[in-house]
Lab assay of single mutants.
Amino acid sequence: VTTYKLVINGKTLKGETTTKAVDAETSEKAFKQYANDNGVDGVWTYDDATKTFTVTEMV
């Protein structure tokens, strides 16, 4: 189990959250659901070296 981080650069929501998951794909699903639940829709990137997802909304 690995800890993954999500950085949110939204128009109205900014911040970070973490989750523990067995792999990046599992954490990505959880993070995308979290973003969707909070009305964040944007461009996703992933940095495997830091286990960090970033979602950026276009303004």
Results as ranks from 00 to 15, higher is better:
residue 11 K to C: 15
residue 29 K to D: 04
residue 13 L to I: 13
residue 38 N to S: 08
residue 38 N to Y: 13
residue 17 T to C: 15
residue 8 I to F: 07
residue 7 V to S: 04
residue 52 T to P: 00
residue 2 T to W: 12
residue 1 V to I: 12
residue 59 V to F: 12
residue 38 N to K: 14
residue 27 S to L: 04
residue 41 D to I: 14
residue 3 T to C: 12
residue 21 A to P: 01
residue 30 A to V: 15
residue 12 T to K: 09
residue 25 E to K: 11
residue 50 T to R: 05
residue 40 V to G: 01
residue 37 D to T: 07
residue 45 T to V: 08
residue 40 V to I: 15
residue 40 V to Q: 02
residue 46 Y to P: 00
residue 6 L to P: 02
residue 19 T to E: 05
residue 6 L to I: 03
residue 46 Y to D: 00
residue 2 T to F: 14
residue 36 N to W: 14
residue 45 T to Q: 08
residue 21 A to I: 03
residue 50 T to M: 05
residue 58 M to R: 11
residue 59 V to A: 12
residue 43 V to S: 08
residue 1 V to W: 14
residue 58 M to S: 12
residue 22 V to Q: 10
residue 24 A to M: 13
residue 21 A to N: 05
residue 2 T to P: 07
residue 50 T to W: 04
residue 29 K to G: 05
residue 4 Y to R: 00
residue 8 I to A: 02
residue 18 T to F: 15
residue 27 S to I: 08
residue 53 F to E: 00
residue 51 K to M: 06
residue 56 T to P: 00
residue 25 E to I: 11
residue 33 Q to M: 09
residue 25 E to Q: 13
residue 36 N to Y: 14
residue 37 D to Q: 11
residue 15 G to K: 13
residue 44 W to Y: 01
residue 22 V to N: 09
residue 50 T to N: 08
residue 58 M to K: 10
residue 23 D to G: 04
residue 22 V to Y: 12
residue 45 T to K: 06
residue 55 V to L: 11
residue 46 Y to F: 06
residue 19 T to K: 07
residue 26 T to M: 10
residue 59 V to C: 14
residue 35 A to R: 01
residue 52 T to S: 04
residue 16 E to H: 09
residue 10 G to K: 04
residue 13 L to C: 15
residue 36 N to C: 14
residue 29 K to W: 07
residue 44 W to I: 02
residue 32 K to W: 07
residue 49 A to D: 11
residue 15 G to L: 15
residue 34 Y to L: 06
residue 13 L to N: 08
residue 4 Y to M: 00
residue 36 N to H: 15
residue 38 N to V: 14
residue 55 V to K: 01
residue 5 K to L: 06
residue 2 T to V: 12
residue 33 Q to A: 10
residue 12 T to Y: 14
residue 42 G to S: 01
residue 44 W to T: 01
residue 27 S to K: 01
residue 38 N to H: 15
residue 24 A to K: 15
residue 38 N to R: 14
residue 58 M to F: 13
residue 11 K to P: 10
residue 28 E to H: 12
residue 7 V to D: 03
residue 42 G to V: 02
residue 26 T to L: 06
residue 37 D to R: 09
residue 2 T to Y: 14
residue 46 Y to C: 02
residue 2 T to L: 10
residue 40 V to N: 01
residue 22 V to L: 11
residue 45 T to H: 10
residue 22 V to G: 09
residue 10 G to H: 08
residue 18 T to W: 15
residue 10 G to V: 12
residue 35 A to N: 03
residue 30 A to D: 06
residue 57 E to S: 06
residue 59 V to Y: 13
residue 54 T to K: 04
residue 3 T to P: 04
residue 9 N to W: 12
residue 17 T to R: 12
residue 9 N to C: 14
residue 37 D to L: 11
residue 28 E to L: 15
residue 51 K to T: 03
residue 53 F to S: 00
residue 35 A to L: 11
residue 55 V to E: 00
residue 59 V to N: 12
residue 44 W to A: 00
residue 23 D to F: 04
residue 27 S to N: 00
residue 2 T to R: 09
residue 34 Y to M: 04
residue 3 T to N: 06
residue 16 E to C: 15
residue 1 V to T: 12
residue 19 T to D: 05
residue 16 E to G: 08
residue 52 T to K: 02
residue 3 T to G: 04
residue 48 D to M: 07
residue 11 K to E: 09
residue 35 A to Y: 02
residue 8 I to S: 01
residue 30 A to K: 11
residue 5 K to G: 03
residue 19 T to M: 15
residue 32 K to I: 08
residue 15 G to C: 15
residue 55 V to G: 00
residue 10 G to S: 12
residue 4 Y to L: 02
residue 43 V to A: 07
residue 4 Y to N: 02
residue 16 E to I: 12
residue 31 F to W: 02
residue 15 G to I: 15
residue 57 E to M: 07
residue 31 F to I: 01
residue 44 W to S: 00
residue 55 V to I: 10
residue 25 E to S: 11
residue 56 T to E: 07
residue 56 T to L: 05
residue 25 E to V: 12
residue 4 Y to I: 03
residue 3 T to R: 05
residue 38 N to D: 02
residue 48 D to T: 07
residue 51 K to W: 04
residue 25 E to R: 10
residue 16 E to S: 11
residue 39 G to D: 08
residue 9 N to L: 13
residue 14 K to M: 09
residue 24 A to L: 11
residue 28 E to G: 09
residue 26 T to W: 06
residue 23 D to S: 09
residue 33 Q to C: 06
residue 56 T to S: 08
residue 52 T to E: 03
residue 43 V to F: 10
residue 22 V to W: 11
residue 14 K to G: 06
residue 42 G to P: 00
residue 43 V to D: 08
residue 11 K to G: 09
residue 6 L to F: 05
residue 35 A to G: 02
residue 42 G to A: 02
residue 28 E to Q: 11
residue 57 E to H: 05
residue 12 T to N: 13
residue 39 G to N: 11
residue 31 F to P: 02
residue 7 V to P: 00
residue 48 D to S: 10
residue 11 K to R: 11
residue 4 Y to D: 03
residue 21 A to T: 05
residue 50 T to H: 05
residue 11 K to H: 13
residue 58 M to D: 12
residue 11 K to Y: 11
residue 48 D to Q: 09
residue 30 A to M: 14
residue 18 T to I: 09
residue 1 V to M: 15
residue 5 K to F: 12
residue 51 K to Q: 09
residue 25 E to L: 12
residue 18 T to E: 11
residue 59 V to D: 14
residue 57 E to I: 09
residue 7 V to T: 05
residue 41 D to H: 14
residue 55 V to P: 00
residue 50 T to L: 07
residue 47 D to K: 02
